[in-house]
Design a protein around this nucleic acid. Structure first.
Lengths: 338, 338
DNA sequence: GTGAAAGCGCTAACAG
DNA sequence: CTGTTAGCGCTTTCAC
């Protein structure tokens, strides 16, 4: 007897669907992809039934191979454990999904070697674009360039030739923060900043200096530390140990500020009564610390959208794009405001 | 004149390498993959040179198509913004990388619909395994089952038939936390717990009850809230509004505890002097709150390794595996210890 | 030790 | 509106 059409064993392919629906494989493609050809409604219904009944799922690897695109964008971050990057990655995922793209995150763990390896891995995976938030301010971009994959520099890495970039106006943000502190009457304002600077000045340091000088104030003390809670904790202890301790501190990341807060709490130094504190990032953590941190908020969603758009959006230009987004000072209690 | 061998335009394929090195494409494969055949050292050197000079990178999509495996595992989490899941994802990435596997993270944003969509997307991407940390305690697993992809349930979802699982001994952990509070002399101990329970009791609730009853204490008040800082903040305010406020609280996640801490700070209620607090998770956040949180730490790295191993490790069994890992009580200040 | 060739599942150009 | 088919880049069997 002739064998009836039966559910195939193993993974269901487009061929199985075609056979089951009594059409050609091309038609199945047209239905699945909504084009490039039209399909008669009755035929489409048959195909959809077959797909449902057979439990067919298109093989993304085959599609990526054929198309030369995985409809995916890769994101390289220095440390996805840092809430700022977590939040950023999350925002990119949303923005990419809205355009039908997937995202794959690669974490460099603060290592440049890992960063390069990540770039290669993503390139091998046929991502259609990569967003690089480098571990350092002066990354070696020759590798990235060699991949020929459209890229966007994410972490305020300046604007090296050949790359689009999305960043925040670090200097203006820092200036606003320091000016706010000056408005509270502080005349000695320290800076806690990262260690990973290249040969260009961190915009936050520039903004801090600019605000101080514009007000005729002396440059305050500056302490370098990692952009992390433990890094901030060390910085906090060093501020405490200073002979001429400043009366206010601008911390260049929320994580550092939270570490500083711990050091101060342990020492019985009150914030803002004994030392005022303003930080940078605007993460949720800053809202739930004690005292809640006055902080310069980065428009993470907007950054993610700008980045995704400049790669795959409708208004993606052929030329490179450079977005510098504004920050917003969020007033809470750590600065001395009631 | 005959044209010299030249760098091809567009992406470099294995064919280009073969031509450049004067060998067949098969040999290039042998070199790249270290097998399955041996290659003469001199030939290998030629191939490696060609690869380097041409900047060849294997196309992962083609490989995945041919092999039927992307050497990737997919991880579905409810909310990658929650530090616990961030940390977990990070640990999985490390553990997978150690075995030559990549990881792709998919975030469900607390939505079951997204969760199902994520599972499908991952399946389409030919992941070799999926780890599911569901939004709910009683996820509908038929979808996952239908994909025929080996899976590990990650978020203490019990042990539904057909799935491996990795979890933590919630009940024992909670019991240890509550017993510690009892050791401090507390007799009225409240519980802050999540809202997303299915029809089975959350192990943390069970452990809290068990410890209380074993000590002959009355069941304390229980308040449900989201596993997030804002959720905890609401819970904290409700505890404050209670007529017979407990003298200690066990919070079932660090995020909730941090929200509770904020509510208490704002109300001028001191921790631990007025109310003691112990939480669950052992995240970095708990170490940097004020006061630092005594918390039940989950062995996240061990969980990730167990999960990865049960999918792709050397000792991966054909049978399903169920790992229940122990927790550790980390004593800090919020419980009343000096 | 090396090479030729089939075929993984899919898309789309081309033919009907 | 539907079908046939070449080929994306890779792995691997089989022949030499």
């Amino acid at each position: 007897m002739t064998s009836a059409v039966q559910t195939p064993r193993g993974p269901v392919t487009r061929k199985d669907v075609a056979r089951y629906a009594g059409v050609s494989t091309a038609v199945v493609s047209y239905v699945v992809n909504g084009g490039p050809k039209n399909v008669a409604p009755a035929t489409e219904a048959k195909v959809r039934d077959a797909i449902r009944i057979l439990g067919y799922r298109p093989n993304a690897a085959a599609r990526a191979l054929k198309l030369g695109s995985s409809e995916t964008i890769g994101v390289v971050v220095p440390d996805n454990t840092n809430p700022f990057f977590t939040h950023l990655a999350h925002a990119v995922e949303e923005a990419a999904a809205a355009l039908g793209y997937g995202m794959v995150l690669a974490n460099s763990n603060g290592s440049l070697t890992r960063e390069r390896k990540n770039i290669h891995t993503l390139a091998a995976r046929q991502v259609d674009g990569v967003f690089l938030a480098s571990c350092v301010f002066d990354p070696d971009l020759t590798d990235l360039e060699a991949t020929d994959i459209p890229s966007v520099l994410l972490n305020n890495l300046g604007s090296p030739p050949g790359f689009s970039s999305v960043g925040v106006d670090l200097e203006a943000g820092a200036r606003a923060a320091v000016e706010h502190l000056i408005g509270h009457g502080h005349t000695s304002i320290g800076l806690a900043i990262g260690t990973n600077t290249g040969n260009q000045l961190d915009g936050r340091e520039a903004g801090w200096l600019a605000a101080l000088r514009a007000a005729g104030l002396p440059d305050g003390p500056l302490i370098h530390g990692e952009f992390s809670r433990p890094g901030g904790y060390e910085v906090g202890k060093r501020f405490l140990a200073m002979a001429n301790r400043p009366t206010a501190i601008f911390a260049s990341s929320d994580m550092q500020a939270i570490g500083i807060l711990r050091a101060f709490h342990e020492a019985g130094v009150r914030v803002p009564a004994d030392i005022a504190l303003v930080s940078f990032d605007g993460s949720l953590d800053a809202e739930y610390s004690w005292p809640a941190l006055t902080t310069v908020s980065q428009p993470i969603e907007a950054m993610a959208e700008a980045a995704v758009r400049s790669l795959v959006g409708a208004n993606r230009a052929e030329e490179l794009q450079h977005h510098i987004l504004p920050t917003e000072l969020i007033i809470r209690q750590s600065c001395g405001c009631p």
